[in-house]
């Protein structure tokens, strides 16, 4: 595996350098948010691949506004917004992947909302890109966004029942008389 050894050296050094820079920055960003928003800003959470700042579900919009408008930060772009269901701890996590074109810097925010009644501040007024991204999370995970201008399903039909990316979702047998189960040509019933 001579080829593999060659490629290792350069890229590993790069990763470590950016990791050091990132560690300093994320702590400073958290401090700045904490000064303005107080207890709504949680700790910096370490992950194996990146760190994120935890925010309360009703402080996201204010935090987003600060992150976008503070001259030293200028997170002008919401690169991605994803939801993930964790029934084990009764929560749905919303993960915001922010990016600043001015400073070439990324930041991840994380919000946990209760699975029974998931409700999070919308950031649509801060980043218009959030309009469709939040609609998608609403559609597939059933999270409602407070203050969203047009919260309706985006990928699934309006009359679809349930939110398929919930871990406890059970696929309906049929949709308007159309079977959702396909008989296997090998005589094995499909589906899990």
């Amino acid at each position: 595996m001579a080829g593999a050894a060659e490629c290792g050296g350069g890229s590993v050094a790069l990763v470590e350098l950016s990791r050091v820079e990132r560690d300093m920055e994320i702590a400073a960003i958290r401090r700045l948010l904490h000064d303005k928003l107080g207890a709504a800003v949680g700790v910096v959470e370490e992950g194996p691949h990146y760190e994120s700042i935890r925010i309360d579900d009703d402080a996201v919009e204010r935090a987003a506004m600060l992150l976008r408008d503070t001259p030293e930060l200028r997170f002008d772009c919401l690169s991605n917004l994803s939801g993930c269901d964790y029934p084990g701890r009764g929560a749905i996590d919303i993960v915001y992947d922010l990016y600043s074109y001015e400073f070439d810097r990324s930041l991840v925010l994380r919000v946990s909302t209760r699975r029974g009644d998931p409700l999070v501040d919308s950031v649509e007024r801060v980043w218009p890109a959030a309009n469709w991204l939040e609609r998608e999370v609403f559609d597939l995970l059933g999270v409602r966004f407070r203050g969203h201008s047009d919260l309706r399903r985006i990928l699934l039909p309006e009359d679809w029942v349930g939110h398929p990316l919930r871990k406890d979702y059970v696929e309906p047998e049929q949709y308007h008389g159309i079977s959702t189960v396909r008989e296997s040509m090998l005589g094995i019933r499909s589906g899990s």
């Binding site: 690169s79 917004l81 993930c84 890109a129 309009n131 990316l165």
Partner: peptide
């Protein structure tokens, strides 16, 4: 969990 935010998604919005 896998989530994909694509270029066309942003462009359509």
């Amino acid at each position: 969990r896998v989530h994909i935010r694509t270029g066309s998604f942003s462009a359509m919005s």
